[in-house]
Design a protein around this nucleic acid. Structure first.
Lengths: 156, 156
DNA sequence: ATATAAAACTTTAAGCTTGAAATAATTTTT
DNA sequence: AAAAATTATTTCAAGCTTAAAGTTTTATAT
């Protein structure tokens, strides 16, 4: 029994494997393009952008653990990124009276202004990069991915 | 003109932005789970797995630049990962007579055996993690992502 | 009240990642 | 043939990433 010269994978489960590979390649392709443009146009990075985007939606601020949960990255990771954003004056940590273990992290005035500009460019880039996906197709795909997410969250 | 307390984004282009966010979250969620299982079950990493998967499909070997192009990562990155795989005895570099700048990289006997085992587990994990996506839906999604890719490759 | 456990973070070590600079070999131009 | 340009790869510095271990503070149990 010989496998032959690399036939297209087939059999039960292969459709899902193929889906995963396509999904991964699509997101890596777009991610690479965004990373490059963020660097070139605004001298920043995707992780910094992600943190700022999360904080932009939360004017009252977020805990480090909120950030880490929301962004799907580890605690220690967020510490480093926030450290750098703080040293650049884009983000501030505010000690809390109630619980001295935690601190509220939020955008500074400058951070908020800066993010607004970058976010506008970011949105138009996405429009460009996904331009060939019709609005209708975009909604259908989004729907499928949303149902994936709720299934995921509901797993034991 | 006030933005209001964070309404769901709407307007032209918002559907594509939302799609991108969902796409990114789905792939990060799955990636994190795979990374954790690869570490726990086989004491390896996703980048190592990716390199070995590419080499598994190419018994005759691949150039470093082939690997880097195929995996969508930088040249220097591949150098490091291959270095580690070589030091673990899973991959070998073979100098070529024709062009002494390049070397053919391929799986060793051990690497190939090891990858076979890991790949089987990997495929069943994907089946499990995407289990709620029906085979039919998987094919539809894959089709959309494939057309994204060909559009992408055809852009100037 | 004291000890124990839990929670929120930070630190650390190892590895991944990129873009840019450096090396070395090959090809093209003059 | 010598010089210049190109190609394939590695090295480097800076930053991202994780899991695990360590700190400090708060909550719970005895």
């Amino acid at each position: 029994m010989v496998a032959g010269p690399l036939p297209a994978p087939s059999g039960p489960g292969k459709d899902r494997l193929r889906l995963w590979i396509r999904l991964l390649r699509a997101s890596r392709t777009i991610e690479a393009e965004l990373r490059e443009r963020l660097k070139k146009e605004f001298n920043t990075t995707l992780p910094r952008f992600d943190v700022m985007a999360a904080l932009y939606r939360a004017p009252e601020g977020m805990l480090m653990s909120d950030l880490s949960r929301f962004l799907l990255v580890s605690n220690g990771n967020v510490t480093g990124i926030v450290d750098r954003l703080v040293s650049e004056g884009l983000v501030a940590r505010a000690r809390r009276n109630g619980d001295r273990r935690t601190s509220m992290v939020r955008l500074t005035e400058e951070g908020s202004k800066s993010f607004g500009i970058i976010a506008a460019a970011h949105e138009s880039w996405i429009g460009e990069l996904l331009g060939k996906v019709s609005e209708d197709e975009a909604r259908r795909l989004t729907g499928m991915l949303t149902s994936f997410r709720s299934n995921w969250e509901g797993r034991e």
